[in-house]
């Protein structure tokens, strides 16, 4: 099987590492070769963060380069727009419509671009945009944005519901399992 590539992008602190762990666990049960690559340290602190998940018969590079991503899962709208060059022709971006101002916007040095979702679609990008924050809050916690987006991603994969649920159970604390199961379902069905 040709290597499949999923990028998870967002803002440091949004929980993208948990999403990549969950995907890693799920893919491992299917017997794939897998690489999950992340950057720790300085970039965690409110900066732009990216995690690469790759799987197939044999995976070499730990990173995904421009033009390689089958899916980009973005936790924030501006971050989705930042990484479009990494999308493969025919690939898909799943994005949270939440906007978080980066420091140049906060201090008024730059504007947060308007109508980014429309502009991405106009550029020919296959975009699936949902308000993952609202859905996470509906499930019981704003922190469940990552699981809402995993639920959304699940629509495009043929893994069974049980396989996803097992991976979630292995990735989140038991006391938040029900909340996250709800968040996953809300993302999948939104």
């Amino acid at each position: 099987m040709e290597t499949k590539n999923i990028m998870i992008v967002g803002v440091g602190g949004q929980g993208s590492l948990l999403a990549s762990k969950l995907l890693g666990r799920l893919l491992l049960t299917k017997g794939y070769d897998i690489k999950v690559s992340e950057v720790h340290g300085m970039s965690q602190r409110g900066g732009s963060v990216v995690t690469y998940v790759r799987y197939g018969d044999k995976v070499y590079s730990p990173v995904i380069d421009m033009g390689q991503a089958d899916f980009i899962v973005s936790f924030e709208l501006l971050e989705a727009a930042r990484w479009t060059e990494y999308l493969k022709p025919g690939g898909k971006i799943i994005t949270n419509t939440q906007q978080i101002n980066p420091m140049p916007v906060v201090i008024g040095a730059m504007e947060y671009p308007q109508s980014l979702a429309e502009k991405m679609t106009a550029a020919g990008i296959d975009l699936d945009a949902i308000d993952a924050l609202a859905l996470a809050e509906q499930a019981g916690s704003a922190k469940a944005v990552n699981i809402v987006l995993m639920g959304r991603l699940s629509k495009y994969f043929d893994f069974t519901q049980e396989e996803w649920m097992q991976a979630i159970a292995q990735s989140v604390p038991a006391k938040f399992l029900e909340l996250n199961q709800k968040a996953f379902a809300l993302g999948a069905n939104a």
Binding site: V11, G12, M42, S43, Q44, R45, G46, G47, S48, S61, V63, D65, M66, G67, Q68, A69, L78, E79, A81, R82, T84, E85, Y86, L87, K88, P89, G91, P102, M103, P104, V105, M110, E111, Y112, P113, L116, K119, M120, A123, G124, I125
Partner: peptide
């Protein structure tokens, strides 16, 4: 991979770049 492909003269196709000033998000 892209830098290696460029120097070894291997084909590589990149994705769509938005015509938009994307503000950086430093830590």
């Amino acid at each position: 991979p892209l830098k290696v492909a460029a120097q070894l003269a291997q084909p590589w196709q990149t994705g769509v770049k938005l015509e938009e000033a994307i503000p950086p998000r430093p830590p």
